[in-house]
């Protein structure tokens, strides 16, 4: 089985070329993801400009503590992911499995905090719909539409990441990776770091920029 995963597909000249193709393919995918999230980000920036007072007021009703904790959790999960790829590079299979599981646990922590945060929005009538209440901010509902779309799409990516990393942990436990072949781990890592970067920008856009302005 190990030979099969190391094999070079017939369209490639060498394993380096095969690796570079997979690597660039994932970067091309990430470029499309940048524009996918970018569209929503741009919409948010435009409407924050058009309905400035409402967006600033509504933005201040978000919970800065949850946002900050979740940023720290995701940044740490990026570290454990980078260490997992390192373990794969040097062939420490046990460490690879451990770091992948640690990354998954941090991702689940992120989702847990997000869940508590969503529940509090629900209790505070901040979910857009007939029972939405936000005094003094006529377009506050629009802010929360953007809030739930942006964080929801991001959460969807986190869930996909958890699935992806679980498969990697399973494959690693079955010793499918070695220093000569670990491309799937490396590419899952790229995806995971990208999810982290989306949050790096969501955090200031939602929680920070309107606290004092």
């Amino acid at each position: 089985m190990a030979e099969a995963t190391n094999a070079i597909a017939e369209q490639f000249d060498s394993s380096e070329q095969q690796h570079e193709s997979a690597w660039l393919g994932l970067w091309a995918f990430l470029a499309t993801e940048v524009l996918f999230f970018g569209g929503v980000f741009l919409g948010y920036i435009v409407y924050r400009h058009v309905y400035y007072e409402s967006f600033v007021l509504a933005s201040r009703t978000t919970n800065l503590v949850y946002g900050t904790v979740n940023t720290a959790v995701l940044l740490t999960s990026s570290l454990t992911m980078a260490l997992a790829v390192h373990a794969a590079q040097v062939g420490k299979n046990k460490n690879l499995v451990r770091f992948l599981i640690l990354t998954i646990l941090l991702a689940i922590t992120f989702m847990g905090v997000k869940g508590v945060e969503y529940y509090e929005h629900y209790k505070d009538h901040q979910i857009p719909g007939p029972s939405f209440v936000l005094k003094g901010a006529p377009e506050g509902e629009l802010f929360y539409y953007f809030y739930f779309t942006m964080t929801g799409l991001h959460a969807l990516h986190v869930v996909i990441g958890i699935g992806l990393l679980s498969v990697m942990a399973l494959l690693a436990a079955r010793r499918r990776f070695n220093p000569a072949y670990y491309t799937p781990v490396e590419l899952s890592g790229l995806y995971w770091h990208f999810v982290d970067i989306v949050w790096i920008f969501l955090y200031p856009l939602i929680y920070l920029i309107s606290r004092h302005s």
Binding site: L24, A31, V34, L35
Partner: peptide, 9 residues
Amino acid sequence: FAAAGFLWL
């Protein structure tokens, strides 16, 4: 590749 997405954004 990495810069392209950012540039277009």
